[in-house]
Nucleic acid binder design. Structure first.
Lengths: 165, 165
DNA sequence: CGGCAGTATATGGAGAGTTATATACTTTCC
DNA sequence: GGAAAGTATATAACTCTCCATATACTGCCG
């Protein structure tokens, strides 16, 4: 049950609509959480009913009326409690990684292709990672760089083995 | 829809029961996938009905009869097709990370405590990471090491700032 | 004027994943 | 002999997540 808490956290940085929250989440992968609008709207409604956030309708510059939310003191308290919970590594669930884990099942040629494709993804993500400012962003950047280095190392290894064979 | 394919992949390394598959997944985090038994059993049943795997009952050394599965050629074909699909980075969903992203919401003292707690988790995972053999394991190890370095760098930064204040 | 793109809200339904619970067989320890 | 611990399978009930779809308002382009 993290989504509501992440929403509270984002709102603690400033009022926002569901649309805004979604934009913030998908724009910033260093946040560690991303959700669909179809999930955000009901979550906001629940938070509202629970008194953790407050809502105000506002005319939109473009499009239908916005619903702008802000955290209440109860919401802030709830958020802080969540922050204080002991951390725990999550159950990994990563399709790209799962595929890479079975790299040995492919012929070297295909293996190489797989690595190249993955490298493209990582390089792209790295380009998108803005010049570093927050701790979370520094972390993301470092991890992406390591990932890239790993891909290159594995590709090199493959090349060497091909040379031997 | 990754779980069935990961199961096929694991079975392609050798026959196993649901129990075994679960054990393999949770023992090896470099695999990038982990699922609950309650999810594995129904998945195996579907794969069986689809003809992707075959089942044989076997007496267990200890406990009730095991159901041992192996991939069929249809299963192997299906697995290879999945492997060939273009990769894509998944939607991030990581509670620990989400909490760290809001580090700035804490007082420096608590921030430090949070980092220390997280460091413990990462260090533990790193200890558990077996001496490196497969590409996926090398990747995991490298990422954990980077993570550890990041935590330490952030802690250092905090200390410096505290010195300034 | 009509259509398209962008902003904004919302719901329905399918599928994925978790938690709790039940059953059953074996070995070990008291 | 009984309780506990480990192996093994299974289901029910629930929550979470994703995808498709609907509605509606605005500005812009042709």
């Amino acid at each position: 049950m993290s989504l509501p808490h992440v929403l509270l956290g984002l709102l603690s940085r400033g009022p926002a609509s569901g649309w805004d929250l979604h934009a913030r989440m998908s724009r910033d992968p260093s946040l560690g959480w991303d959700a669909d609008l179809a999930q955000i709207y009901p979550a906001l409604r629940l938070l509202l009913r629970g008194g953790f956030i407050a809502m105000k309708r506002r005319r939109s510059v473009k499009g239908p009326a916005r619903r702008e939310y802000r955290v209440t003191s109860a919401g802030l308290r709830e958020f802080r409690e969540w922050l204080a919970e002991p951390p725990g590594l999550p159950r990994t669930k990563d399709t790209a990684l799962a595929r890479l884990a079975f790299l040995e099942k492919l012929r070297p040629v295909d293996r190489r292709a797989r690595l190249v494709a993955y490298r493209g993804l990582v390089a792209e993500a790295l380009r998108a990672a803005a010049p570093v400012s927050t701790a979370a962003k520094r972390r993301r950047r470092a991890l992406l760089e390591t990932e890239l280095a790993w891909v290159d190392a594995e590709a090199m290894l493959l090349a060497v083995q091909a040379g031997d064979g």
